[in-house]
Design a binder for these strands. Sequence first.
DNA 1: AGACTAACCTGAAAGC
DNA 2: TGCTTTCAGGTTAGTC
Length: 288
Amino acid sequence: MPELPEVEVTRRRISPLLLGRSIRTVITTAPSYVFLTAPHLLEQKLTGRTFVALTRHGKYLLGQLDDGARLLVHLGMTGQLFGEGASSPRLLRRTANGTLGSCRQFEPDAHTHLILRFESGPAVFFRDTRKFGKVQWLAPDESSARLNKLGPDALHISGATLHSRLKKRRGPLKSQLLDQSVLAGAGNIYADEALYLSRIRPTRMAHRVSLDSCRRLVDSLQQVLLRSIETGGSSINDYVTPDGSDGGYQDERHVYGLEGQPCKTCSTAIARVVIGQRSAHYCPRCQR
DNA sequence: AGACTAACCTGAAAGC
DNA sequence: TGCTTTCAGGTTAGTC
C-alpha cells in the first residue's frame, strides 16, 4: 500500500526513465475510474511531449511537461509505476506456469492502464489492479483542487505546525494523521508506527495533544518515513518498487498488522481497534 | 467548517 | 474441495 516512502522511492527510480525522453506513443485502457482525464485526451496531450521534472507532494506525483502542462499521478492502494524490463515478484507468483523464481519480464495486462513509449529507452507502465489510483492531465496554469487542499508534506512539517493545525480539529489523533489536509503523506502503516515510537495512543483527542508530544510525533514520523525510503518502501501487500524488487521496511514494523504479538518494548500484546473505519494498532502499555 | 459515511475496485484469505 | 463472505485501505462526494 503506497504511502509517502513508496511514492518517493517510485519517484526516484522512475525519474531517470522519464525525464528528458520524448514520448513517442501513449497507450491507455478503456475509460475507467483511474482516468480523471479521458484516456483519448491523455494520449493526445502526452504524445510528443517530454517530462522535465518529477516532484512529489504527500502521496501525489507531479510530472512537469515541456509545454507547461502537468501530469498528476496517485498510486491509490495498488498502483505501480515501473519501467520496462522490471520483474514483479507478485506477478511472477500468479502467472508462473513453469519455474518459480525465474526472472520473467513484465507483460502489460488488463490492469496496465497507461503505457508510455519513448523515442529511446525502456517504456514506463502504470498498473493498478484496484483502480484506486488516479491519472490527471493539468493544462498549463490549471490548478488542482486535489493538490490545493493538501497540508504540508509529512517530511517537512514541524511539530509546532502540526500542533497548531491539530488545535482546530476534533476526533482521534489517528484520524487526523490520515487526513491529507492536515499533513500529506502519512498512511495507515506509518501513522501507527509513528504513534508507537512517540508513545502516543491513537485514540487521543487530536486537539488535546501537547506541543511537546507533537514534536515527538513528528520526529518519529519523519524517522520511520526516512528509514522506509532507505530500505525501499514497505511491500506488505501489493506494492513492488519500480524495478520489481521488494521493499524491506515490513521487517521493521513494531505494531502494524501485529495484533496479539508481544510489544518489542514491554511484551504486552499489541492491540487492534477500529478508528474512523481504519484499523489502528498500538501497545496498550507503552502508548498513553 | 469539520466530521462522518458510503462508495469506488479487486484479489487474497477466511469461513462454511 | 469449492463456493461464498469478509477484509484491506486512499480518497472523495454527499450528508449532517
